[in-house]
Computed example of a mutant assay.
Amino acid sequence: MKPRTLLATVATSLACASAFASAPDIGLSNGYFGTEWRNQMIDGANQQFQTYKNKGMADKLVVQQSGANTGQQIQDMRNMIRQKVGAIMVDANSATALNGVISQAQRSKIPVVSFDQAVSNPYATNVTVDHYKWGQRYAQWIAEQLHGKGNVVVLDGIPGHPAAEARKKAALDTFAKYPGIKVVWSGYGEWDEAKAQSVMATVIAAQPKIDAVFTEDAMALGVLRAFENANRRVPIMTGEAQKGFLTEWKKQRDAGNPMKVFVQVNPPDISRTALGIAVRLAQGRKLKPLPDNTYYFPITKTVTAENLDATLATMSDKPDSYFLGQWLSEPELDALFAQ
């Protein structure tokens, strides 16, 4: 090999090594965990991260899960700041309680991306579904199916959780517009199938007439099983784009149950979209201006009786716990940034 060629090869190798060495770490602080949705969310982030790592865009994904302990989540984020990660992603337990530690990240010039639900600190970039509109869409569909009259149960996630409270408020606000709709019970199932089934069984025993149920996530399957165990049918319900629920819905339909169901995707893979934004911010790229510094992930996938079979066919190789995925492509992510 000629000396000049050797020098060029060495220089190229050093440049590549330097690029990988300087690739940023990304922190991911998750609050509540243990549900199938959260498990898929973390798995999706880990899978997507490998793409960025292989391209030399990032080095390590540091995942910390605090559970419902907001104080622990704050400490986890402080640790990430001390570790000098390139950006912090957070699925927050609270819209306001993390504001102080987010300001600490700002002082350290570390970008923060709050995903799944928004936080109120204006420094953070929010990447989330509009949970109020999401819940409003479900409630409006129920009101229309009921023709403005009937007894409704509202079963949502974790008390005090920003997403759960926004959806619940949207449902109650919408139903309040219809004098003929009576919310006979409203409460929480903690986004857990078994918990929701237990809660719903108690509600069914106390309510002789239930015309519709507003619910989502893994709770939907629990609700359906509670009605089955009580030898009753739920005429109208919202559900979840999870294989287990969709499979049971199909079973009920094929057995002659005429219940009406509407499902819209709430993608756990929003973590992939948030990660793509966080990696780019860590590289120093600038987002185009966003209203309220928030990117509302567009929900374009829904499941109805018309496309139930086709949707299940796309999930044939997935476990029952699988939620229908949706996330931004790399070109769509790049389009959010100034060139």
Rank of each mutant, 00 (worst) to 15 (best):
T125P: 04
A206Q: 13
N126H: 01
S114A: 09
D317M: 06
V265D: 10
A196S: 10
S198Q: 14
N99G: 07
V263C: 05
E240V: 13
F337A: 11
E36N: 09
Y138H: 12
A241F: 06
V223W: 02
A335V: 11
G86E: 02
K177A: 04
A194W: 11
P235D: 14
G31K: 06
A163D: 03
D156F: 02
K195C: 02
F33L: 04
T247M: 14
V113M: 05
I74N: 14
P159S: 01
W134A: 15
F227D: 15
K286Y: 09
P111K: 10
Q65R: 07
Q50T: 07
Y132V: 10
L312A: 11
T300Y: 01
L290W: 01
L308N: 13
D192R: 05
S186M: 04
C16A: 15
L61I: 03
D173R: 03
L221F: 06
Q264P: 04
F115E: 06
E330A: 10
P208F: 12
T70C: 06
A58W: 04
I26V: 02
Y132S: 11
V265H: 05
M200E: 06
G27Y: 01
N39A: 03
I81E: 08
K84D: 03
Q64G: 08
Y178A: 00
P319Q: 05
R280E: 05
S198D: 07
Q50F: 00
R285K: 15
A194P: 12
K195Y: 01
D254F: 07
A255E: 14
F214M: 06
S271E: 05
K149P: 08
K243L: 07
L324R: 10
A68E: 10
A218R: 09
V261D: 13
I210W: 08
Q72D: 14
P208Q: 07
A163P: 07
S18H: 11
W141E: 05
W249E: 14
Y296V: 07
M77K: 11
S186W: 05
N229V: 11
A68C: 03
V10G: 15
A97W: 02
V63Y: 02
I81P: 08
T273D: 09
T35F: 00
Y296R: 04
L14T: 15
A105R: 06
M237D: 14
T5H: 12
A241C: 09
N293P: 04
G34L: 00
N46L: 01
L312Q: 07
N151P: 08
G67S: 02
L224S: 14
I74F: 07
V10I: 15
Y123I: 04
N69P: 12
N229W: 10
T96I: 09
A226S: 12
L28C: 03
A17K: 14
G27I: 09
I42Y: 00
I181K: 00
F323V: 09
V154Q: 00
Y322T: 09
S198P: 04
Q83K: 08
D309G: 09
E248Y: 12
F262D: 09
V265N: 11
T9W: 14
V234W: 12
Q50C: 03
N293C: 01
P179E: 00
Y322G: 06
E144T: 04
N293A: 02
V213L: 08
F323K: 09
V62W: 00
T174Y: 01
W185N: 08
